[in-house]
Computed example of a mutant assay.
Amino acid sequence: MTQRFSITADESTGWDNAGQVRCEPSWSGYRVVLVGEVDLTRSAEWEQVFATLADADPADVTVDLSAATFIDSSVLGAFVRLHRTVSVRGGETTLTGAVGPVARTISLAGIDRVIPVVPVSET
């Protein structure tokens, strides 16, 4: 089941650039997708993602950042928390698709030394 967390009242309008998070099953476990500018204001969506994953069987989680244009320190903290949650269950967390300012933020914070970061084509 796909859980879509959107800031728009009418989800038929699709994603906008204001920042959204969604979690959906994937072939290897779960895929978390970030779209647009994702920051502290999206913490409620992260909590829903963590609740979904807390009840899940051990599975890998891929965070797709290919549509993210900005992340802040609260998102970096969520990545670390996600990594810990998934690792305890025996799964692996991978970040994919990070480019530009998003990739730079991850690198400057050293998250790429803790959580594998791979190009989209490798996931």
Rank of each mutant, 00 (worst) to 15 (best):
A18M: 13
F5E: 06
S6F: 15
I71Y: 02
A9I: 09
L65P: 02
Q48N: 11
T41F: 10
V117W: 12
E47Y: 04
V102E: 01
A56E: 08
G110W: 11
G91C: 01
S6T: 15
A78E: 02
T41W: 06
T123A: 14
A68N: 00
Q20I: 05
T52V: 14
S28C: 05
V86P: 02
M1Y: 07
A44H: 12
S87C: 02
T52M: 10
S28K: 13
W15D: 06
T105I: 06
S87K: 09
D16A: 12
S73Q: 00
F50G: 09
V120F: 09
D16Y: 07
D112F: 10
T8V: 15
L65T: 01
V86H: 04
S87E: 08
M1I: 03
R81K: 08
V118H: 12
Q20S: 15
S6R: 13
G29M: 04
G97A: 04
M1H: 08
I111S: 08
A9G: 11
V114Q: 09
D60A: 03
S12F: 07
G77Y: 01
I111V: 15
L34Q: 08
I71V: 07
V33T: 14
S6W: 13
P58G: 02
M1A: 10
A18T: 11
V32F: 12
L65R: 03
C23T: 14
A59Y: 03
F5D: 03
S28I: 11
T13P: 02
D55N: 14
V32H: 11
E45Q: 15
E47N: 11
W27L: 14
R113L: 14
Q3P: 00
L76V: 05
S66C: 04
V117Q: 14
R4V: 13
L53S: 10
V75F: 01
C23W: 07
G14A: 08
D55G: 12
T123F: 10
S74E: 00
T123P: 05
F70G: 00
V38P: 02
W27P: 05
A68P: 00
G19S: 06
A9T: 13
R42C: 15
V32E: 08
T94N: 02
F70M: 02
A78Y: 00
V120T: 15
D10I: 05
G77M: 01
T85R: 11
R89A: 15
D16E: 12
A56S: 15
G110I: 04
R42V: 05
S87W: 04
W15L: 10
T96K: 08
V114A: 09
I111Q: 07
A109W: 04
E122T: 15
E122A: 15
T52W: 05
P119F: 09
P58N: 03
V49E: 08
S107P: 00
G91W: 04
D64H: 02
D64P: 01
T123K: 09
N17A: 14
C23R: 06
A103K: 07
I111K: 08
P119D: 11
D72S: 00
S74K: 00
L65D: 00
G14Y: 12
R42P: 01
V120W: 11
L53C: 08
S121N: 09
A98Q: 04
A51W: 03
A68C: 01
P119I: 10
D16I: 11
G36C: 09
V99H: 13
L34N: 06
V21M: 06
F70S: 00
A18N: 14
